[in-house]
C-alpha cells in the first residue's frame, strides 16, 4: 500500500499478512468476486427501484423498463446476471473453504457467518425470481409456499414471507420488502462482519 498507509484503505488491510495467503491459488478471489457482484447488485437494484412496481404491475413495469427507458434493459440485465454470478461464486467460495479446511476453529465463526450468507444469497435469488411477476414466478411462489407449510407454524411463516401471491404472479409487496430491505440489508451487514473477521484473522489477497 505504501503511501496509503495512513488512509482508510490502508487501515482496511492487516499490517502483516502471510506470504502464502497472498497466492492467487489460496482463495481464487472467489469471495472478492462475490462481494463485487453484491456491489453491482446494490447499485443496479437501487436504480431499478425508481421504476419497478410490485404486485399487479410488476411484469408490465419491467417490460416498459426493458423496452422504453434508456439503458433500462442494460441495468436490468446487469442486476440479473450479477445475481446469477453471485450464487455461483458464493458456492465455489464455500467449496474452496472446505477444500482448504478453513472452517476449523479460529475461523469457525466466520464459516458459520458464511453459511448464513449463502442461505441469504439463495433466498435473495429466489425472491428476485418471484419479483419478476410472470407466470413462472407465480408457479415458483406456489412451490415455495408448499415447502414453507411443511415447517411447524409454516402457514404463518408462508404468509409473512410471501404475502398473498397468485398462481399467475409471485410479486407481492411482502416479497418486495424482504428482497429489497430485509434480506439485502442483513446480507450487507453480515458481509461487513465477515470481512472484519478476515481482517482480524490472517487477511487474504485483495481482489
Amino acid at each position: 500500500m505504501g503511501k496509503h498507509n495512513n488512509s482508510f484503505t490502508g487501515h482496511m488491510r492487516p499490517r502483516q499478512i502471510m506470504a502464502g495467503a497472498l497466492r492467487l491459488r489460496a482463495t481464487f478471489c472467489l469471495g472478492g468476486f462475490s462481494f463485487l457482484a453484491f456491489i453491482v447488485l446494490t447499485i443496479t437494484g437501487v436504480l431499478l427501484l425508481f421504476y419497478y412496481q410490485p404486485g399487479e404491475r410488476a411484469f408490465a413495469s419491467l417490460s416498459e423498463l426493458d423496452s422504453v427507458l434508456p439503458y433500462g434493459g442494460l441495468i436490468r440485465s446487469l442486476h440479473f446476471w450479477a445475481g446469477q454470478l453471485m450464487v455461483i461464486t458464493v458456492f465455489l467460495h464455500m467449496v474452496r473453504v472446505v477444500w482448504s479446511r478453513a472452517y476449523r476453529p479460529l475461523k469457525e465463526l466466520n464459516w458459520l457467518t458464511g453459511v448464513a450468507l449463502f442461505g441469504l444469497t439463495v433466498m435473495l435469488d429466489y425472491s428476485g425470481y418471484l419479483l419478476r411477476g410472470g407466470q413462472e414466478s407465480g408457479s415458483a411462489a406456489t412451490v415455495g409456499q408448499a415447502l414453507f407449510r411443511l415447517l411447524p407454524g409454516g402457514q404463518a411463516l408462508a404468509t409473512i414471507f410471501f404475502g398473498q401471491p397468485t398462481p399467475q404472479n409471485g410479486s407481492t409487496i411482502g416479497m418486495y420488502v424482504w428482497h429489497v430491505f430485509i434480506l439485502a440489508g442483513v446480507a450487507g451487514f453480515l458481509q461487513l462482519f465477515h470481512f472484519w473477521r478476515i481482517r482480524r484473522g490472517s487477511g487474504v489477497r485483495p481482489l
Binding site: 416498459e64 422504453v68 427507458l69 434508456p70 439503458y71
Partner: peptide
C-alpha cells in the same frame, strides 16, 4: 481495481444513469 479505474467508471456512468432516471415511462 485501482482508485483511478473506479473514478473513470463512475464518471462514465453518470450520463447513462441520468438518462435512465430522466426517462419517462409510458412514453407514447
Amino acid at each position: 481495481m485501482g482508485r483511478k479505474a473506479l473514478l473513470v467508471l463512475g464518471v462514465c456512468s453518470i450520463y447513462p444513469v441520468s438518462r435512465y432516471l430522466r426517462g419517462k415511462e409510458n412514453q407514447l
